[in-house]
Simulated scan of single mutants.
Amino acid sequence: MKAELKRTNEPIFWLLFGAGGMLSALIGAMLVFITSFAVPLGILPAEVFSYANMQGFAQHFIGKVFLFAIIALFLWHAVHRIFHSLHDVGIHTGPLARLLCYGIAFVGTMLAGWALLVMA
């Protein structure tokens, strides 16, 4: 007799969680270093993060892809961690909590994509 496997979308969320975790480990620490220490302490010139430079970066196709990946994957990583942490602290989540957590990530991802697309 063949056992049937239950179909689930959980691997998709674990994929986004893993990608966001890898990206935050590799790039997040450098972003914190640059914005919190390197520029304020004068290690990097302040012009590097001027409004004009950052706007130019965000308007370029590669910059948009980079910013979208950072925002979306960090967001999916965070909500997945929060969702599973609720169980760890004794709050047993149901479909509403799942919808709320992943809905926030979905809406945030769509807003980031929209904001980057309308940026001329």
Rank of each mutant, 00 (worst) to 15 (best):
L100Q: 10
H84R: 11
P11N: 04
M119C: 07
W76S: 03
R7T: 14
F17W: 12
G42I: 03
A78M: 10
I62A: 15
S50F: 06
A69F: 05
I71V: 10
I82T: 09
M1Q: 09
I71W: 04
L44S: 02
A112L: 04
V65F: 02
M119Y: 13
G94P: 09
G113P: 14
V107L: 01
H87V: 15
T109E: 03
A19P: 15
L117V: 08
I43V: 14
I34N: 07
I70V: 15
G18H: 00
H92P: 02
F68L: 07
G103Q: 12
E47N: 06
H84T: 00
F13Y: 15
R98Y: 14
T8I: 05
F66D: 08
F33H: 05
F57A: 03
V89G: 11
H87L: 05
F17M: 08
S24C: 06
E4Q: 11
V79N: 05
G21I: 13
L111G: 12
F106C: 08
H92N: 01
G18M: 03
I62N: 11
F49Q: 04
A78E: 07
V79R: 12
V79T: 04
E10I: 04
I62H: 08
A58L: 04
G42K: 07
V48Y: 07
I104W: 02
G113Y: 15
S85L: 13
G18P: 01
G20L: 11
M119R: 14
S85I: 10
K2I: 12
R98P: 06
I71Q: 03
S36K: 02
V65R: 01
L16H: 02
G20F: 11
A19L: 15
P11E: 00
F13A: 02
G20Q: 08
G103M: 07
I12H: 14
T35G: 15
P45Y: 00
A97I: 03
M54S: 01
K64D: 01
M1H: 09
M54D: 05
T93K: 06
F61L: 07
G42R: 10
F57D: 00
M54P: 02
L75W: 12
E10L: 08
A120L: 06
T93M: 07
I71A: 10
A97K: 04
T93V: 09
G28F: 13
L15Y: 15
R98W: 15
V79F: 06
L99E: 13
W114R: 15
V32N: 12
P45G: 11
Q59M: 14
H80M: 11
I82Y: 00
G103T: 09
F61S: 10
S50Y: 06
T35H: 11
I104T: 10
E47C: 07
G18Q: 04
V32L: 08
F83R: 13
Q55A: 12
F17C: 00
I43M: 03
A19T: 11
F57E: 04
M30S: 09
M30Y: 11
A105F: 08
L99V: 12
G94W: 04
A97D: 05
G28S: 04
H77T: 09
I82G: 02
Q59F: 08
F74M: 12
T8S: 12
F13N: 15
A25S: 05
L5H: 06
G90H: 13
H92L: 10
V32Q: 10
P45A: 05
R7Q: 13
P45N: 04
L73S: 09
H60S: 08
I82N: 01
S24A: 06
M22G: 13
I70M: 13
A120H: 12
G28M: 12
